[in-house]
Design a protein around this nucleic acid. Structure first.
Length: 1026
RNA sequence: GCUCGAGUGGCGGAAUUGGUAGACGCGCUGGAUUCAAAAUCCAGUUCUUUCGGGAGUGUGGGUUCGAUUCCCACCUCGAGUACCA
């Protein structure tokens, strides 16, 4: 073998690596550890396109580099295999989602294997495997058995909470829990029934059951989390989402809001990603204030109510002129007066019906209604009318605001719209057009004891006053909501929960996994229960400790099981720990030894779309697991890199569709059933069907040609129709008149188009039935050209490029290098297959470097492998060491595109130098091996090594080979480079100056002037000013 | 609207601390080799020019001997977010 037969080489090494488990990570090693992870792929039915492996290639290069650096590298891969698409497919086809998931995974694996990744497949995980979700359920139970102690600022066991309740009741408990839990003493607690105790405990658990306002998606038949909704419609499928109250499992992630925020400072993540988590958590500092509702004689119940509000501007409290409640606010029905009842109820009903999307679509329309009730200003005692309005969100703060129209634009707009007073409490502020919301330059006035104070002084003073009066206090508020954890779906983890007396109970951990039951259909039941409601055997027998038939439910020993399943993020919130364990997977989710050895993920690569989903939830779970002593770390991913999207270059075929008026005349005047047919009146007039014609790019402006051609098609179609019908018995003439036309561009599959944008017309015709007989107008040279446009790579745009095809045609090493060569990892960039020949040519050149220049007849006419043991030239060594330095720096900065360039430069230089010495070529193979591992292994073997190149030590950079004695100085005049001058590096500034001044070109550029100044930076530049 | 990021040849992009703008690759042009094609190799390729030179990194200003790089204002594109009190 002498030519670069990449297909053979790659198949050979992929087989070798698999058979020898070359990349198996050791849990017991003297080497330092390094953990490189890719974001969990969901195995979709469409398979991989060239955009998907981008991040995997980058992480693989880094993993291989770290192995060369002497690290014990963990670089695993697996599948986030529960999820909506498989279930939607199951609903449509009746196929079990496990089956399609299996098939999709097989296809993914096949594609991944072709690219030559150094994954340790022995540690693969799949979230839908019972052996895996057993532990997801187990972690859920840990959450259920935990509560959050605000004083210790960590999660603790529920057993400890019970102990506290038994000894001192709940009065001194400072926990993150439901609102409005009644106080009880220890003896009261001990007197409660078990069901009552469970009811109370549920309000403290980190995962709890509650009636919540959720995002219901009727088309998907499930609720969605906030991060699963994009622009008011579902992320998957784009279906509308409405608000609905449902009993749901929730996760008390809000307990961790501050720690999730603080933790961001400790991790090396891209700033935009941190920003979006910061915004999502949405911390704001302010105060809660309680407003008393004035007793209204005509209201339904005569009782004293109060409204709590949260405000970030307590300093503006003297500017309050009314109160606004969210329509969903509990108090609305209680305080509304009889006169306003009808209007209020109508309004509440109307807003409930509006979907999220509608609400978002019209932010501008101001709506609201007066309740008839008044609140009392806590300081001035003025009555404040209480309104409801849907600009106040039920889910944020307390669902009520103190409206300060002079300082808040929304309050201002509302006040203007309903003619409410707008008192001004800002000194020298103009509020005639809009609210004055500047915090920094504000001086408060008309505000009693706050007069003449600025924002921060006034805020401190008012909070002190509120606290003294006991009607408010300083408070930090978060936008982050508790995460809804129930999904009304089949293809997810079952909750290890059964219901006794309406209270949830966990099934014993030794009975896990609680396996997903079989159902005959994947749809909700007629009663609207989730698909698990269709299972025959879905009840828990507490004596037999097993799942039994639903018919046996007696609520004494056999109880119904939970029908919801967990959301997609359950399994992906802890999977990175599972990879750490390789032997004791049956006993633990991951052993202490494994967790302590691998700690956290050192490098995590994936897309930025998971910013507020997976990446927030997994941080939450890890912090929780850390609190409960389950893992030693409190952040999962130390360093994170977002890879940019690879975009597709869609191909567009021009389609001209013209319409004609076709009129049929008879030529002879004949009588048909006594009706004379007259020559000059048409016997028939019709508008032609669209005459479709495909037009090559440069012909698209040739309207005359297009019209002519389209006319022929229209006529042909007409004649065919006429022939199929009965032919008239008289002579006819057809006249045709052009009406109008349009040219549109339609997607063609990019596989029909070559690198010169020429369409394979035959392939295009065979693509669709309706194109079979289509007509094509080509360029003058007979080719048909398409236009190109960069779009997202997607099946529906027919611009998907398959990595398998690239591997077959150019090889995996070429694919890997080219993906890196396209541009910076983090940036979005278009894929253009045409450019791939450059890196492919580079690999061929690299191969040649290790082989004889001319074919050797004794080698069957092929080039012979030739590497000499002679010393390399000075230039070659310089090339090598320059490349070592650059490659190392580039990999460490994740600048993979530039190191591919530097390899090209190195190979170009070494080829020119005719270098073939082992001293240079051996280290060169190692340098390139992270990028192009197959060719590197092959050359390594030819160089006489029997061990894999993958653990060969990375070449050591030595400065001495780069030391120069002279420098080609750029000589600038007023900052413009004019010529260069080679000078020794060891001469003084003065010597440089005299050498430059003595140069003939200097005089030429000075044109007789005397320089004002000569700037000399030794080793860099010379700049002459004047 | 707010937050963040980015604007450099025909294209993807390079220039790591302010120091020769356009590395490397694609494409294009010309040439060698070949019966021919593929492959390979060589030369050229920012624009403009009266062939001396001149202009040039989104726009306008500033700092500097010197700015793609730093500062100010603006324009355009992309991403995220969306009444958060």
């Amino acid at each position: 073998m002498g030519k670069y037969h990449f297909n053979e080489i790659e198949a050979k090494w992929q087989k070798h690596w698999a058979e020898n488990q070359t990349f198996k990570a050791e849990n017991d090693s003297n080497k330092p550890k390094y953990y490189v992870l890719d974001m969990f792929p969901y195995p979709s039915g469409a398979g991989l396109h060239v955009g998907h492996p981008l991040g995997y290639i980058a992480s693989d290069i880094y993993a291989r580099y770290k192995r060369h650096q002497g690290y014990n590298v963990l670089h695993p891969q697996g599948y986030d295999s529960f999820g909506l698409p498989a279930e939607q497919y199951a609903i449509q086809t009746g196929q079990h989602p496990a089956k399609t998931t299996e098939e999709n995974i097989a296809r993914y694996r096949e594609q991944l294997d072709k690219i030559g990744f150094s994954f340790d497949w022995s540690r693969e995980v799949r979230t839908s495997n019972p052996e895996y979700y057993k532990w997801t359920q187990w972690i859920f139970i840990q959450l259920f058995e935990s509560w959050y102690d605000k004083d210790l600022n960590k999660a603790r066991s529920i057993e400890e909470l019970r102990a506290i309740f038994s000894s001192e009741g709940n009065v001194h408990i400072n926990a993150v829990c439901d609102e409005g839990i009644a106080h009880f003493t220890a003896s009261e607690w001990l007197g409660f029934l078990e069901t009552e105790k469970q009811e109370i405990l549920l309000k403290y658990r980190l995962t709890y059951l509650a009636e919540t306002e959720v995002n219901w998606c009727p088309q998907l038949g499930t609720v969605l989390a906030n991060d699963e909704i994009v622009n008011g419609v579902s992320e998957r499928g784009g279906y509308p989402v409405v608000r609905k109250k449902m009993k749901q499992w929730s996760m008390r992630i809000t307990a961790y809001a501050q720690r999730l925020l603080d933790g961001l400072d400790k991790i090396d993540w891209p700033q935009p990603l941190k920003d979006s988590q910061t915004n999502w958590i949405g911390r704001s500092k302010g105060a809660t204030v309680t407003f008393k509702v004035e007793n209204v004689p005509s209201s339904a119940v005569e009782k004293s109510y109060s409204i709590d509000v949260f405000t970030t501007r307590p300093d503006t409290i003297f500017g309050v002129s009314f109160m606004t409640l969210a329509p969903e606010h509990d108090l609305v029905s209680k305080i509304t007066t009889a006169e306003q009842k009808e209007a209020v109820e109508k309004y509440v009903e109307a807003t409930a019906k509006r979907s999220e999307r509608e609400r978002m679509a019209d932010v501008k329309t101001i709506t609201g209604v007066f309740t008839g009730a008044y609140a009392e200003h806590p300081f001035t005692k003025e009555p404040l009318p209480i309104w409801i309005g849907d600009y106040v969100l039920a889910g944020y703060g307390t669902g009520a605001v103190m409206s300060v129209p002079c300082g808040d634009q929304r309050d201002y707009d509302f006040a203007k719209h309903f003619n409410l007073p707008i008192p001004n409490i800002f000194k020298d502020a103009d509020i005639s057009e809009e609210a004055y919301s500047d915090k920094e330059n504000t001086i408060i006035t008309n505000s009693d004891f706050l007069n003449d104070l600025n924002y921060s002084e006034a805020t401190d003073k008012i909070i002190a006053a509120l606290e003294e009066k006991g009607i408010g206090k300083g408070k930090i508020n978060y936008r982050l909501r508790d995460a809804v954890f129930s999904r009304q779906r089949y293809w997810g983890e079952p909750f290890p929960i059964y219901y006794k007396d309406g209270m949830p109970h966990v099934i014993p951990t030794e009975c896990l996994p609680l396996r997903l039951p079989e159902v005959e259909k994947y749809l909700p039941t007629e009663e609207g229960e989730p698909p698990l409601g269709r299972a025959d055997d879905w009840a828990w027998d507490v004596e037999k400790l097993s799942v039994v038939s639903c018919e046996l439910i007696d609520h004494k020993t056999v109880f119904p099981l939970e029908l919801n399943t967990m959301p997609g993020w359950a399994g992906s919130s802890w999977y990175f720990f599972r990879y750490m364990e390789d032997e004791k997977r049956d006993e633990v989710f991951a052993s202490k030894e494994a967790l302590n050895y691998w700690k956290n993920v050192d490098l995590y690569i994936g897309g930025s779309e998971h910013a507020t989903g997976h990446l927030l939830y997994s941080r939450f779970w890890v912090k929780f697991m850390h609190d409960r002593g389950l893992v030693p770390v409190d952040e999962p991913f130390k360093k994170l890199i977002n890879q940019g999207m690879i975009l597709g270059e869609s191909a567009f075929v021009g389609r001209y569709s013209g319409y004609f008026k076709i009129s049929v005349f008879n030529i002879e005047e004949v009588e048909i059933q006594r009706e004379p047919l007259l020559k000059d009146n048409p016997i028939m007039e019709l508008i032609s069907e669209k005459a479709e014609l495909f037009v090559s790019l440069k012909m698209q402006d040739e309207l005359k040609i297009l019209q002519e051609k389209a006319k022929i098609i229209a006529l042909e179609n007409f004649n065919n129709k006429l022939e199929q019908a009965s032919k008239p018995s008289f002579k006819t003439e057809i006249r045709i008149e052009f009406l109008n036309a349009q040219l549109d561009l339609i997607h063609s599959d990019v596989s029909f188009v070559n690198n010169s944008n020429e369409l394979d017309i035959e392939a295009f015709k065979n693509w669709r039935e309706e194109y079979k007989n289509a007509e094509f107008i080509t360029e003058e040279d007979g080719t048909f050209k398409v236009s190109r446009e960069v779009e997202k790579m997607s099946k529906s745009k027919y611009n998907v490029v398959n990595p398998d095809d690239i591997c077959n045609q150019y090889g995996a090493d070429t694919l890997r290098m080219y993906e890196m060569f396209l541009g910076p990892l983090e940036q979005a960039k278009p894929w253009n297959t045409a450019g791939i020949t450059g890196v492919h040519g580079f690999l061929k050149k690299l191969w040649k470097l290790y082989h004889s220049a001319s074919p050797n007849p004794s080698e069957g006419g092929e080039q012979e492998f030739i590497v000499s043991e002679d010393n390399a030239s000075k230039e070659s060594l310089k090339t090598l060491h320059k490349t070592i330095k650059k490659t190392q720096e580039d990999i460490e900065n994740f600048s993979f595109n530039t190191s591919v360039s530097s390899f090209m430069i190195a190979v170009n230089e070494l080829s020119a130098e005719k270098c073939n010495s082992r001293e240079v070529l051996e280290p060169l193979a190692i340098l390139i091996s992270p990028y192009a591992p197959h060719i590197a292994e092959e050359l390594w073997e030819k160089l006489g090594h029997s061990e894999s190149i993958s653990t060969a030590p990375f070449p050591k950079f030595e400065e001495k080979y780069l030391v120069e004695s002279t420098k080609e100085y750029p000589i600038s005049f007023n900052g413009k480079m004019r010529f260069t001058l080679e000078l020794p590096l060891d001469i003084s500034k003065e010597e440089i100056e005299s050498a430059v001044m003595a140069h003939e070109k200097t005089a030429q550029y000075l044109e007789g002037r005397t320089p004002k100044k000569v700037i000399i930076v030794p080793g860099k530049i010379v700049n002459i000013v004047g």
